[in-house]
Design a protein around this nucleic acid. Structure first.
Lengths: 330, 330
DNA sequence: TTGAAAGCGCTAACAA
DNA sequence: TTGTTAGCGCTTTCAA
């Protein structure tokens, strides 16, 4: 089981009849070695089964060709596309993507970052639960890109919530709804605050009265409490912090004999995989997840300001399905 | 941006008034340094904000405290619980879990492993697409644990397909079904072959005739083709390679005016998150994902044979929901 | 219990 | 274009 010592550049160098540094160059700086030498080296390496030692490389060069993607909660399907996009972009750039899970915990998120310090070139923090101050401190020590969180001048990629929420308000308003509840996400969620700001800021203009209930941990299970909270508020439409919560809300409403969308409309965020499979299929604000993941990686690899602005906002569009319909007044 | 050099053990040593090797021991081998010295060192480290350099440590010691979890396809929700279980167990053991995605590709899986060689202590390969020979070769060079794949003597964790499939057969048989189709997964999927073997092996004993259709890539979209294939086979029940395929099959059947479960019953594998949310909720063979993930990590960390047998089989149970019902003959 | 010193495998000056 | 050499930060003998 791997007890044979791995070959090093020295073994390759001896075999190829060159110096170790030449082997190093042949692998690392293709331009700085003659084609003939390069081929000799590559052949020798092949024969020996040489694989570069990433630790030695990183120790000396300070470069790891590895970036970490920190997810607030890996079990949230919303992150799927994000991972996909980030991973593909990272691979194209010859980088390894390390996915880490914060399990919705500030402490775990912080510890994971600590643990990866010196092992990665930078962090993409998706829906980070850290405080502004913690993020600013981190940005002083590491390359950082925020996803679904904005804190200038830290580079970030977010979905445009103003535009997205306006679409939701318009949709509900045009269906005749007047009283709407927003079931908010975790107090530590920047996104939840952002959504509330966008929704409440645009409510009046659409003739809507908005109530905030919650906060709720964004899980299907918690949808029950959220639904009860919304019902108590006497609304005809509910906007949930995300699709998981929305799904739970729909279930609870139906269990309580409240018809969706006839009695109450429900709208979610993220358009996760399951959203269109439900009965009724869920109306939800879509998210360009793969694109966001790709851009976050690019932002991390290329110094922002050159090729990109530092704060990216991606448009997102409302996907109208059958969980929303005409309100009592419509 | 991190231009201040990180403190090293030498800085800590100077500050604490000890030798660098003592600092190293204070962090690495707690027993081999006096308590008083240890406290001095820890205090000095704290003051300087010292964080051990994982590369230097790994370069010297050959230990990385990192294990890789390779997933055949990270977008398959089945892997959620697996990741959760593996991650928690790894963290408890002070290890970092690197999640990598093979995107259902043999080549990508292989390249990712190559790329992580020398960066991790071992690999957990979930639903690996590599050939038996490739796996055996890898096992000679790396610590390996297989998940949902068995290839003795490589340590592995699999769900007990014999028992699980027997439950499916019993269930369908007792509902009066006689003709059953198995919509198989990718040809490279060991699990799909295993399921077919378990199903076809037990069919006769339950008075069932089993037909194999496919193979199909296990996605919701491919459910359409799979449903058509099953229908053409003239069966009253369909067992799909996994829940994603099963979901697609249900949709297609309904689109074609075939009632589920009245006309055709559908059974999946994995009991993914969405399975119970569908209409009708999906009958499926559950999977102890978190437990499997935990055990795989333990198998990788502890040499098998001491605390565990090398080949683990976890029982799995059929979750009966409304996508299966009495067949035409029942 | 502690210190001195020799590398782990590689990269990056600096020379040639 | 290539070789020589000095570390990167740490662990681990070996001595004291």
């Amino acid at each position: 089981m791997g007890s044979v010592p791995e070959p090093t550049i020295y073994d390759v160098a001896t075999r190829a009849g060159v110096a170790a540094s030449t082997v190093s160059r042949a692998f690392g700086v293709p331009g700085r070695v003659s084609e003939r030498t390069r081929q000799k080296v590559v052949a020798a390496a092949e024969e020996l089964g040489y694989v570069p030692n990433p630790h030695a490389r990183a120790l000396q060069s300070g470069k790891h060709a590895t970036i970490a993607l920190m997810l607030a909660d890996i079990t949230n399907p919303y992150f799927f596309e994000l991972i996909r996009g980030a991973e593909q972009r990272a691979r194209v750039a010859g980088n390894t993507l390390v996915i880490v899970n914060a399990e919705e915990s500030r402490r775990i998120e912080f510890e994971q970052i600590q643990g990866l310090t010196g092992a990665v070139d930078g962090f993409i923090l998706a829906a980070s639960r850290l405080s502004d101050d913690e993020l600013r401190a981190l940005a002083g020590k590491h390359r950082l890109v925020l996803l679904d969180r904005e804190l200038p001048p830290i580079p970030s990629v977010v979905r445009d919530m103003r535009g997205g929420c306006r679409q939701i308000l318009e949709h509900l308003s045009s269906l005749g709804h007047r009283e709407v509840a927003y079931c908010s996400g975790p107090p530590t969620s920047w996104m939840s605050a952002e959504r509330w700001a966008a929704l409440s800021g645009g409510a009046e203009e659409h003739g809507l009265t908005l109530r905030r209930v919650g906060p709720y941990a964004p899980t299907v299970a918690n949808g029950a409490v959220a639904a009860d909270g919304a019902l108590r508020a006497g609304v005809t439409a509910v906007v949930a912090h995300n699709d998981l919560l929305a799904i739970g809300i729909v279930r609870r409403l139906r269990d309580r004999g409240v018809a969706v969308p006839e009695d109450v409309s429900v709208v979610g965020f993220d358009d996760i995989f399951a959203a269109e499979l439900l009965e009724p299929p869920l109306t939800t604000l879509g998210a360009p997840g793969a694109q966001a993941g790709r851009l976050a990686v690019e932002l991390l690899l290329d110094p922002p300001g050159r090729h990109h602005p530092a704060q990216l906002r991606l448009p997102s569009d409302l996907v109208i399905r059958r969980s929303s319909g005409p309100g009592s007044g419509g």
